[in-house]
Design a protein around this nucleic acid. Structure first.
Lengths: 186, 186
DNA sequence: GACAAGAAACCGTCCAGACGGTATGTTTTA
DNA sequence: TAAAACATACCGTCTGGACGGTTTCTTGTC
């Protein structure tokens, strides 16, 4: 540490920075704007540097996917641990993660996942596996029709946010949150 | 009319064909594969021909958007007319259109809308207006929290389908459909 | 701890192909 | 015959990625 003035190398930080930039670009200017040039430049790295960390574009997107789902898994696990009631535990964690007021920085990053998923058919298979895995892991506690419905509703609101549809007023939003949580326990 | 043997030109048909091809390509190979070359070739038209109907790529996507939303409006209006109960009428039409078993040809085409929407920031504004308009038109009958929730749930299932998530079994699906319709009336 | 030596991190340039779009035809229709 | 409906040829730019360098880090050896 503390050799900042020596311009020490921080490969892991650079890698992370590249992923973050890719995510931000995709979110702000659409997935079409995620080019090797744009990403590397915005990350303050040369294109060669980028291609050192990610040998091709697909592996960059793949890395982004892994990064995001790993983070997501951690957050979900965290929320689930602090929930005393087993029934609907996963669903409530899901709600807590995705059903948040706009602008919460955390929520922004998951949006990228959806965008990447839709624009890259290749990633869909990985997503399918993610869903399948979590469904199987929580099959005892979160497979009631109501739980399923709750998660779908969250996804819907999620999508609406992503597409910039008119925002719900805070009141309705709170009411809906309560209802969703209630349904997760029924 | 009836000059079919003369190989008459059908500009309107060509235009439609171009839109259909663009939609199919976007759905099957991702929005990135929607290029002027690919679309025109797959539609059996030269690139110049395409650019005659749509002076640039944006106007092609814009045309696709208009085409799809107009069709959607027609279908929704149709469903609403054959629904005797005013309360939740729009929501039920929405459910009927989007909550259908996979493979129904009609549902495929709406998927393209979502894909285009996500990948083209420019179209999002038009979408916002579409949503706003329909929300305003049905504000008396379809603005209860439950109606909103139903529509979001449909959107969620919709997104799951789009991302190729594991399909619901027919049983659960039917049950959910019933529940959604019930909620639209509450 | 000095130092060689290889590995990892990163840079800059170049290229082939794809892409959106223009300019200019030719045929068909009204 | 004028305009609409196409086709053909072409251009400038961008993009993914290959490649050969240079710098920095790590590791083994004495």
């Amino acid at each position: 540490m503390s050799k900042a003035h020596h311009r020490k190398k921080h490969p892991e930080a650079v890698r992370q920075q590249l992923l973050e930039v890719a995510a931000r670009l995709s979110l702000e200017k659409g997935p079409g704007s995620v080019t090797l040039d744009a990403v590397s430049q915005a990350a303050g790295v040369s294109k060669g540097g980028l291609l050192h960390h990610f040998p091709n574009k697909l592996s960059l997107l793949d890395g982004l996917f892994s990064d995001l789902t790993e983070k997501l898994d951690r957050v979900l696990a965290e929320k689930m641990q602090s929930d005393p009631e087993p029934k609907g535990r996963f669903t409530r964690a899901y709600v807590a993660v995705f059903f948040v007021p706009e602008g919460m920085d955390d929520s922004e990053q998951w949006k990228v996942l959806t965008i990447a998923l839709i624009s890259e058919p290749h990633l869909r298979e990985r997503w399918r596996q993610w869903v399948e895995r979590h469904l199987a892991e929580n099959i005892g506690t979160d497979s009631s029709p109501d739980s399923v419905l709750v998660r779908y509703a969250v996804d819907g609101l999620w999508l609406a946010d992503l597409l910039g549809a008119p925002t719900l007023d805070a009141e309705t939003r709170t009411a809906m949150l309560g209802r969703l949580l209630a349904l997760s326990r029924s």
